[in-house]
Design a protein around this nucleic acid. Structure first.
Lengths: 343, 343
DNA sequence: CTGAAAGCGCTTACAG
DNA sequence: CTGAAAGCGCTTACAG
């Protein structure tokens, strides 16, 4: 009972006494005129032989592999894990598969993987560009994909517009509502731990922070701002300086750094939120189960992944699909890490 | 400057005035006898044209795609995220790519994805079977892979041995050392929140728990045992019953449920670890940054992913590679969630 | 030292 | 209603 080789279309043709053309036609439901007896016979035999088309052969000839490349900086980061999960789910439901590429935020890998994916005939790629990727790198990727006439969907850390679809939360608005919420709770000395300001998402959140201050006539002060690198350790290290500058609240540009603020507070005996309020960004799973659940800006990472694949499916079907950006609204998730200090 | 089509081996042959055979030979470094002038010319032209072989064509003919399927229950779970990251890194370093499949613990998906992966000509697959997958399901998968003569590496939730490689931490020993540690710290009324006992990893950890009790002449008591489903909510819900039974410590079979125990303790005003000690299993990233960092059993998920791909690379090169299991030693990570109650 | 030919497993005009 | 033929982009005996 051991079949070393899978049945091919030829095996079916031989067994059914017809040509492989006919088999192909029937199995793909292309020729409706074929005698229903022949049709039934072919289908029966295909089932008997457990026939499944070799997708390499199909892809080679149709120039379509039903395959999408997904390039992320770090799949073990919950944010990208959720994104991948959403993308995979949507892909699976349209008979696509995902080829996973993890760059560790190495910009060279962005291009390297893109080429490899193209070698494998992917129909499109979803890419979260590496943190330190120069704009020239993103351009290179876009050019590569354009030459092949294949969609590139840029996600989260978006560099430029126009010729491709980009998907992201509205980072600026996220920064704005996070800061606004702190202001509404009576805070005026609001520290800010940004992400790398070389990254657009970080610059946009920073813009939102400054805009919210301005709208409330609170003077922006550079001494309340520290540039982090999106890691827990940065949050911890940078929070200490902010504490010394007497901030009553800190807006950390991601949840990870917010956790770092928690650690710094614990180390220095600051109570949360009585002595120091914190708002994060991302809404990672952990944020809801902490002892002091973190108030944060929710990013719909799962939905972003879904949306990326959905847009690709549209793009592949109809090249004229508009390639404009998809912007998700950020949402403030109020939990317990902010103290109202209005009297 | 827009090339709609990628250069093919034929384009090179035409431009160099040689046959495609020669081009293929040179580019694959197969025929060393070829005139070095011809060789150089071909290589130069290939570079000029940015030639990259179409992997669909290569795969179709060589029956090897340098592609590995990875089937996991939930890629957004840090444990599997780390595993995927390790697998991807190792894959990338041997020029393999990973096709990601997410089953949401639906056993039917295990088989469905396996077939799809086979259609795509993967060289092997790494699978973490779904939680409720019956043994018959695992057998089906093994049979499928055997027929194609392709390695299947079963990871973490292992069903059966022999014909395939399985990779996992030693769950029983993990359960043993976790329990032993609590005993050494003076605990005798040790609650236990297991995973689904239908899953082998859970049964093994349970065995370790009972063995540790026995070795210390502590009577096993069923009332100290609750069966969970590896989710935070189970930990929280089941901990309450255990508290009522006056346990002084709880061994949760994964970190997620341990977090649930934390939540239950907070709700009931129990201090950690003064009133209740907890040990987890997995050593998720978050466990180290909690206010009361969790003492837990470390599972080397990244290394497991790496090992899976490394074994596959060996297996693909040499069919005679031994197919026995790879068992990682679990490691106790002592942090702050256990109180020593010896006087 | 190099090339013509067969073939991997399919799809798709085209012809009958 | 059905099939012969060409072809997708490669590799690999085989022949010279």
């Amino acid at each position: 009972m051991i079949y070393l080789a899978r049945a091919t279309i030829r095996d079916i043709a031989v067994k059914a006494g017809v040509s492989i053309t006919t088999v192909s036609l029937v199995l793909n439901g292309k020729e409706l005129r074929i005698a229903s007896a022949t049709k039934k016979k072919i289908i029966r035999i295909a089932n008997e032989l457990n026939y499944r088309p070799n997708q390499l052969a199909v892809g080679l000839i149709t120039k379509k592999t039903n395959t999408i490349g997904l390039i992320v900086p770090d799949i073990s980061n919950t944010f990208f894990g959720e994104l991948a999960k959403g993308a995979e789910k949507e892909a699976s439901s349209c008979a696509y598969n995902i080829i996973l590429c993890n760059t560790n935020d190495n910009p060279d890998k962005d291009v390297e993987y893109l080429n490899i994916l193209l070698d494998r005939g992917v129909d499109a790629v979803i890419m979260v560009p590496s943190a330190n990727s120069a704009d020239s790198m993103a351009k290179k990727c876009l050019t590569l994909m354009e030459q092949c006439q294949k969609p590139l969907v840029l996600v989260d850390r978006i560099k430029m517009g126009e010729k491709h679809t980009s998907i992201s939360v509205d980072h600026e608005q996220g920064g704005y509502i996070a800061t606004k919420y702190l202001i509404e709770n009576g805070h005026t000395r609001i520290g800010c731990i940004t992400g790398p300001l070389g990254m657009l998402n970080s610059r946009l959140r920073f813009l939102g922070y400054k805009k919210a201050l301005k709208d409330s006539d609170i003077r922006f002060q550079a001494k309340y701002v520290e540039e982090g690198n999106y890691h827990v350790e940065d949050g911890e290290r940078l929070a200490e300086g902010l504490f010394e500058n007497k901030v009553t609240a800190i807006f950390a540009f991601n949840d990870l750094m917010a956790y770092g603020v928690y650690k710094a507070a614990a180390k220095l005996g600051c109570r949360m939120p009585e002595d120091i309020s914190v708002v994060g960004f991302d809404d990672l799973f952990y944020s809801s189960i902490m002892e002091v659940p973190l108030t944060t800006i929710h990013q719909p990472s799962y939905e972003i992944g879904e949306a990326a694949v959905r847009r690709i499916a549209e793009l592949v079907k109809d090249e004229n699909t508009k390639k404009e950006a998809i912007i998700f609204k950020p949402k403030l998730i109020v939990r317990n890490s902010v103290q109202n200090i209005n009297r």
